[in-house]
Design a protein around this nucleic acid. Structure first.
Lengths: 169, 169
DNA sequence: GGCCCTTCCTTGAACTTTGAACAAACCATG
DNA sequence: CATGGTTTGTTCAAAGTTCAAGGAAGGGCC
């Protein structure tokens, strides 16, 4: 697509190295995502994202979380979460409860069935992740990956308005 | 989810560092994916994957590719591609043509309209990628990311049956 | 040619995601 | 304590993805 003028002057195209990095990134992430989706669909009967929701709940105190909390943790929209929880509820792995302190609120709660599914499928999932990712990387690469991904994630977070400057709100 | 026996002995759970890396990876990739999807949906009227298809076509000789080729390049299923191309065809950015050498085959061809859309939106897309990824990383980190992603991608490619051992087929 | 197996691509149904729109509850302010 | 703006979670419809099934063409082999 390169050489062509444009409204705001010539854009800085990706050079050869950058293009290779970007393509590798795109390919690796789609392959890994598909791989884990298939693995979990097969072994747990749910997509990767839904599995992640159960994990979040299992880590939370009393295995419950406000919908919005859960959505924030998973970086997904509330709409998407609503649908997902509805589905997980139908499967019997999550149930909802009204939030006592805020009548608008809903709590998503991991059921015992949900916990069992997680316990049963977590080992297989972890080894899939290891096999596809960690086992192939040196310790330095793992560290580097962590740093890079942390930077990228932080750069894309809709920054908490005044989270660190509360007096300016 | 950690301490619990399991069928095949105690699985090797992710340790603290590994968990942090994995979470950062998941968060960064979903945030980046959503970010670019929204960017392209807004500016080009299509999801990121579809944009990628147009890019592939624009890079191909005569701006055309067999469906299977295209699917392989993008690491997606032929089914998904079929639907996607159908949509892009409806938008007028791609058209199909029968493959002359193989009557089963279809060629996906980038139309002039498709090319124009690409030319118009590529600069904005590139700067989104830069801003979200490259501009935040040191040259060393970019290099490292490329290496890591290449390793992961290669590990997940359904290895070309006998591509390097053709005599064993 | 006839047979069988494979590859190529499409299709339809089920499922998931998106984005806009909405009602209910909260809350800051006057 | 009213009022207007915000937050919470859901809903609908449209769009995208998955998976299994299937028709058509290629290709090896007798």
């Amino acid at each position: 697509m390169p050489p062509t003028p444009s409204p705001a002057g010539e854009p800085r195209w990706l050079d050869g190295d950058e293009q290779r990095v970007w393509r590798a990134y795109l390919q690796a992430t789609t392959l890994l995502d598909d791989y884990l989706d298939r693995q979990l669909q097969r072994d747990a009967g749910m997509p990767h994202m839904y599995y992640g929701l159960l994990v979040q709940l299992s880590d939370a105190p009393r295995r419950r979380l406000r919908m919005t909390e859960l959505a924030k943790n998973m970086k997904i929209t509330r709409s998407r979460l609503s649908h997902a929880v509805a589905r997980l509820e139908k499967s019997g792995w999550v149930r909802r409860e009204d939030c006592p302190s805020d009548k608008r609120g809903q709590l998503a709660i991991l059921t015992d069935d949900g916990y069992e599914v997680l316990r049963g499928t977590a080992p297989g999932h972890v080894s899939a992740v290891r096999q596809a990712l960690f086992d192939r990387l040196t310790p330095e690469q793992q560290k580097s990956l962590g740093e890079i991904m942390t930077i990228v994630a932080e750069g894309l977070q809709p920054k908490e308005a005044g989270a660190d400057l509360p007096w300016l709100r």
